[in-house]
Amino acid sequence: MHLILAQASSGGGYMQFVMLGGMILIFWLFFIRPQQKKQKEQRKFIDEIKKGDTVVTTGGIHGKIAAVEDDTVVLEVDKGLKIKFEKAAISLDASKKYATPTAAAS
């Protein structure tokens, strides 16, 4: 009788390991992978910023890129008013939303 219980409990440990592996896989598919993809898109967007692009900063400031330096950009927010920002402060999502209505109106 004890032998049967010992075998049943060892099989249960294997199933717990499989279930844990399944949960890790689901967590990776639904949380980690999409976040990595979004970060990759953000890096690509920042690397491809060029003079004349219309963007929005993470602080909500809208403007046009006047100059691009190593890690910074100069943003023209009004005629003659320019502000220097880190490239990382440019928001991909907000810039897409900001640029979409303008492109559709043209």
Rank of each mutant, 00 (worst) to 15 (best):
M15Y: 09
A103C: 05
K38Q: 04
Q36C: 04
V56S: 04
I83C: 08
F30I: 13
Q16N: 10
E48V: 02
I61K: 05
S10D: 08
Y98V: 00
S91Y: 02
V74Q: 10
F45P: 14
L3P: 00
Q39W: 12
T72A: 06
A8S: 06
K87P: 07
A103I: 13
M23P: 07
Q39E: 15
G60V: 03
G59E: 09
F31I: 04
Y98E: 04
Y98P: 00
I26P: 03
G11C: 10
A94C: 05
L81I: 13
A104E: 11
A67T: 04
V77M: 03
E48K: 10
F31C: 04
S106V: 15
D47P: 04
E48F: 05
Q36G: 06
A105F: 13
S95E: 02
V77Y: 00
Q16H: 08
T100L: 10
L92S: 11
G12K: 14
K37L: 13
V18S: 09
W28V: 06
E76G: 07
K38P: 00
A89N: 12
L5H: 02
I90V: 15
K82T: 15
Y98G: 00
K37S: 12
G12I: 15
K87N: 06
V77K: 01
A89Y: 11
G80H: 13
F30M: 13
I46R: 15
D47K: 13
K40V: 03
F17H: 03
K64Q: 06
K64D: 00
G80W: 14
T72D: 07
A88K: 13
I83W: 12
L25T: 10
H62V: 08
Q35F: 06
M19A: 14
I83S: 09
L92W: 12
S91D: 10
Q7W: 03
P101L: 09
L20I: 07
I24P: 01
F30H: 09
F17I: 05
F17E: 06
V68D: 03
T100S: 06
G11E: 14
L75F: 02
V73W: 00
Q39Y: 11
Q39N: 14
F45N: 13
I90S: 10
S106L: 15
K44A: 13
A8M: 05
W28G: 02
I83A: 10
V68A: 02
E69G: 01
S106E: 15
A104Y: 08
D53T: 00
P34Y: 11
L81C: 06
F30Q: 11
G63M: 02
T57K: 00
R33A: 11
G52Y: 02
L3M: 07
T72E: 06
D53I: 00
K50P: 03
H2Q: 13
I26W: 07
A105M: 12
A8V: 04
I90R: 12
K96M: 14
V18H: 08
